[in-house]
Design a protein around this nucleic acid. Structure first.
Lengths: 342, 342
DNA sequence: CTGTTAGCGCGTTCAT
DNA sequence: ATGAACGCGCTAACAG
């Protein structure tokens, strides 16, 4: 039927419109662009008519080639299946659209080689700015790109890369978590984090946790990483006598998922045997046991801010590097409500 | 410091490489493209050297402009926050990369106007093919696009749009669900679906459900939609005497989330008072109550197949329209394991 | 206000 | 095997 392969799919071009309306290409270009004011009503009418009749759509590739402005923003995401990333991405995309930009998302699946390839790719498509939510190995490529375009980091810093950054105020979040746990009567807290891989937010959360523990003499703090040993380690924590009621602090949604899985394997009575507070607020938190208490991140705002940072730079802002730290919001559910002992 | 605004960010171009290597642009072009075989070793060496030294990257925009091949695939998604969409998208992206294509994703947030805008956008960027996972209003625009490029539907059909389609074998899935429920001793089944909005898969699932019920004299079947009334309607279902043990069949992950929420509000004992089986298999299903029995969709395969359909067409396949129906896989958990009455 | 001209970066005939 | 010249679709100077 149709042949989409070698044949140039002949689309209607600016020249077609110009001829149809009996004007020059320049006039059509002005009509398309921001110079419509310069056209006489008569001509504008004819052009509008022709565009409608022919179904003309300007070719962004060609526009971009000429003007150097593609209206494209790139986003590099470490793990597209992490709900946090999706939520932020949604925020970014909404902001993009609002300002007439489009978003090209590249998922690296936590793979360094893919990160490299995607960076080259985004560059080859002449994106105007880049949002990075990966570990940012390949520093050289990032630096090179940063010389060509503005760049903003989301959630995770990249060493030796001076650029705008938007994320969570991790020390404050850790403080909220431990203050809440202490107030609710928990005394023995286990931080569950994904394995250390250099992710700055992860490191910050652990450091902040330790700081908080040091400042709260009533609390004891311990730390484990998710992985094949998780269930066993959790078991040890639960079995070891401590200074009082025990609770888990999961450093993100993935850790919360893994921990809850493990607790179930241990036949734990959710959440009477042990309390739980988790960073991120996922839609299923209310459904597990008596509900999981969360520290929600303002993901939409984070995404929108990331784009706005980019936009400012695109518009010529040469100011100093900015860091935006958003605050988490405490959502109390059953997992930090201790049952009064009978 | 840097100025990213008006200034043309001067990137190294093919001409730069040519001059540096003291050859013509044509030779560089051949080196970049598929004609490298035509070059003498000496020249190829020099070009390779120059490219490395200058850090040259071909401009995909310009290439696409000339050859009509952008190596870009577009995907229109109704709801980026639906885990199903994400999973399929991940499958598509993986397949894309494997064949040297990149994916541009547009999220419509279930909004018709956004669908229209995104379609225009994708077209303006000269994508080579389109994957559609929306309601597909704006039939005219879709038809027009389909004349220009191959198109494949995912999960939901679009009326009067004859194109390849990949999705779930819904009748078979409904059969699996009801056979399982019946075998497990449930007799009174309530189908919970999102509101009807024309989504074909939704309609098919409901129709298949009714067919199955008609063929199973031991079962009684009822139907409700998610929404503000859900909890009340669920309550009615639970309170109304029926032919035997009651169970819910949730038509997708969203319905499962909403239903579980409602059951909790009703202080239901999950899942002793009522059974539950849900389409889609989300990572939190095992964590709720005794675990939610699922009919998992092979989302990666669905995504990969969608891309492969496109690829075949791009390579000139003019054959008849294809429809690929994948089968669901039953994952039994506690929610369909009835406790023996004491 | 409008048309003419000259590229943007690249691929592709043609010659040589 | 290599280079010169033209054009992809469009915008930006410059005239008029």
């Amino acid at each position: 039927m149709n042949d989409f392969s070698a044949a140039q799919r002949s689309r209607v071009t600016m020249l077609d419109v110009a001829e149809h309306a009996k004007v020059s290409k320049a006039s059509v270009s002005r009509f398309i662009g921001d110079d419509r004011a310069l056209l006489s009503d008569a001509i504008a009418q004819r052009i509008e008519q022709s565009i409608a009749e022919l179904g003309y759509r300007p070719n962004q590739m060609a526009r971009g080639l000429k003007r150097g402005r593609t209206r494209l923003i790139g986003m590099l995401v470490a793990d597209i299946r992490n709900p946090y990333s999706i939520a932020v991405m949604h925020g970014v995309e909404t902001a993009c659209r609002q300002y007439g930009y489009s978003l090209v998302v590249c998922n690296t699946d936590r793979d360094d080689e893919q990160e490299r390839q995607h960076l080259a790719l985004l560059r080859s498509y002449n994106i105007e700015g880049l949002i990075v939510n990966t570990l940012g190995h390949h520093r050289d490529e990032l630096l090179e790109l940063h010389r060509e375009m503005p760049l903003v980091l989301v959630d995770r810093k990249v060493e030796h890369l001076e650029s705008d950054m938007v994320g969570l105020n991790n020390p404050a979040a850790a403080e909220m978590a431990l203050a809440h746990l202490e107030e609710r009567g928990y005394r023995d807290v286990l931080l569950v984090t994904e394995p250390f891989d250099g992710t700055s937010s992860r490191i910050e959360r652990v450091a902040s946790f330790k700081t908080q523990i040091a400042q709260r003499p009533m609390l004891r703090g311990t730390l484990i990483e998710t992985g094949s040993e998780l269930t066993a380690q959790l078991n040890t924590f639960l079995d070891t006598p401590g200074p009082g009621p025990k609770a888990l602090f999961c450093a993100n949604g993935i850790a919360a998922l893994a921990s809850t899985h493990a607790l179930r394997e241990l036949k734990c009575n959710l959440f009477e045997d042990v309390g739980l507070i988790a960073l991120d607020d996922l839609d299923w938190y209310p459904l597990v046991g008596t509900g999981i208490t969360a520290l929600a991140q303002p993901t939409s705002e984070i995404g929108a801010s990331a784009f706005e940072c980019l936009l400012k730079r695109l518009r010529g802002d040469d100011g100093a590097v900015r860091t935006l730290d958003f605050s988490a919001r405490l959502v109390v559910r059953g997992s930090t409500t201790r049952r009064v002992s009978v």
